[in-house]
């Protein structure tokens, strides 16, 4: 493998990791602060992608459509928190899993009723449709955009959490919820805000992933599994952990797929190596998770 190819694969890993981070940040915030397991996080991702596709049809402008879709997804999140999830904070995790699994079914059927069973069309805007020349490397522009947006979101989240009053309350809430309540903070409002923020982030992830992936019913569940791997590796509840976990998973998955089949060909016959290499590459992130859990059972950056 030459250097250019290695550089491209590293960039691919970084970009995939950043996309996973957009998903994982919201999920881990909601879990860390509200102690709520939200399986329907993937549904917000799907809603974000579908709404972006729908708004592109209305505005004929990708950025406008994306902003409208993210805002509306955050509102949908707010509505779900108000109507369905508020009464589940004090229930145990199994009840939450059941309730949010029900929400997955609800959102999937709703999307099917509104947009039909067939995957719908969403392409990158014309400006991001081609490739960009990076020091001799032809790289897809849309992937660079995802990378940029992901880095910007990570910075903004850090500013929000480390430098603002709301961020202070979020950190305090994650560490000791009872004490924050005792100090007279309106925890219900705080929770609603955090939940809407998480939904908005998932919507943004869906809007950014939509041009690259299939926009279809059930798309949220496919990425949700990877997202859970990310937050388990990073440490549940920690945004820093989500970033580290997402980048690790993105890198290990991409580099595993790039190198393992070739590695297996060194000591197996080609037919067996092709199958075994592919299978090993798809297991790589789960092996990573098992290793991290064996060494640090609470993840890389445990919260609280």
């Amino acid at each position: 493998m030459d250097t250019l190819l290695i550089a491209e694969q590293a960039l691919n890993g970084l970009q995939f990791g950043v996309m996973l981070f957009l998903m994982a940040a919201g999920l881990t915030l909601v879990f860390g602060i509200m102690d709520l397991i939200n399986l329907a996080h993937g549904s917000f991702y799907m809603v974000g992608a579908y709404l972006t596709a729908a708004f592109v049809g209305v505005f004929d402008h990708f950025l406008l459509a994306l902003l409208a879709a993210v805002a509306l997804t955050a509102l949908v999140g707010l509505a779900v928190e108000w109507t369905a999830l508020r009464s589940f904070y004090r229930r145990d995790h199994l009840d939450q899993v059941l309730a949010t699994f029900g929400l997955i079914l609800f959102f999937n059927e709703l999307a099917r009723i509104i947009w039909g069973p067939v995957p719908i069309f969403l392409n990158p805007p014309a400006a991001l449709a081609g490739t960009v020349n990076l020091f001799g490397l032809q790289y897809p522009a849309i992937r660079l955009a995802i990378l940029g947006v992901g880095v910007a979101v990570a910075l903004l989240l850090w500013l929000l959490i480390a430098r603002t009053r709301v961020g202070m309350l979020i950190r305090a809430g994650a560490t000791n919820r009872e004490m924050v309540m005792a100090l007279g903070v309106d925890v219900r409002l705080l929770f609603s805000l955090v939940f809407a923020l998480g939904a908005g982030l998932a919507g943004l992830a869906g809007a950014m992933a939509g041009p690259v992936l299939a926009v279809q019913v059930g798309m949220g569940e496919q990425i949700l599994i990877l997202t859970f791997v990310v937050i388990v590796i990073g440490g549940i509840g920690s945004v820093r952990g989500a970033l580290a976990g997402a980048l690790l998973v993105g890198m290990v998955d991409t580099l595993g797929r790039a190198t393992l089949p070739a590695l297996f060909r060194l000591f197996l016959d080609p037919a067996a190596a092709n199958g075994a290499g592919g299978a090993a590459a798809s297991m790589a992130i789960y092996v990573l998770m098992a290793l991290v859990l064996a060494i640090r059972p609470r993840g890389l950056f445990p919260a609280g």
Binding site: F16, T254, R257
Partner: peptide
């Protein structure tokens, strides 16, 4: 090249880079 990817795989960036190479 003969490549088998995971069923339901979302991202093909790694494989596409290998194709180019």
């Amino acid at each position: 090249g003969e490549v088998y990817t995971q069923v339901g795989q979302l991202d093909y960036a790694a494989e596409l880079a290998q194709i180019k190479a």
